[in-house]
Amino acid sequence: MLQITEDTAHAVEGIPDGATVMIGGFGTAGQPVELIDALIAQGATDLTVINNNAGNGDVGLAELIRLGRVRKIVCSFPRQKDSWHFDKRYLAGEIELEVVPQGNLAERIRAAGAGIGAFFTPTGYGTLLAEGKETRRIDGRDYVLEHPIRADFALIKALRADRAGNLVYRKTARNFGPIMAAAATTTIAQVSEVVETGALDPEVVVTPGIYVNRVVQVLPAPAHEEAGQ
């Protein structure tokens, strides 16, 4: 049953220590900063986090890492100009890192939501990131076997939800939202606006409400900090 709330603390209730949590966003675009702030306040620790990056600046995921609440991060691009909190923890051996090519990361998340057992992809074949993985030659091309990535919770950001949990996004902030929504047991979406059921054109719904468990309305804040790298 979909829960709709205006309280981010309520929205992140029940995330336990040791949970695997997907966090949407590419850099800061689409990063659900208010939900991450609520998770920071909620206290869950020993988390495995799946995100494209490993935090930008001093807010959101970067702050969660600074506080030592993330045991492992699965991402494609941890090292950025402003990923100093991750860099420090990683170089001190205090956080585990699994680097996944960005398209494989996306497809592994998609596969989890789509009930795919594993898939062969050409990306990464013959590289360090495919070492130890099963490979197969299909029609003259070499592929690597990759497995789905699923999560207990997904924290994502969308532009607008209706009261059935249908979501629409905004520009490139869409990024991982739709696939993470499908790949987690419990999906929590922060949105700028909740509209009445029927007010979203069914033709433009991007994430159908079947994938969404909790919606929290977060009033649009001024753009959060500057763009990260």
Partner: peptide
């Protein structure tokens, strides 16, 4: 990746772009 010890590996979309 430079492969240097201590370098933080970060691949992003490079491998997907290369073969796609």
């Amino acid at each position: 990746h430079t492969g240097k010890p201590g370098a933080i590996p970060a691949v992003g979309g490079a491998m997907d772009l290369a073969i796609g």
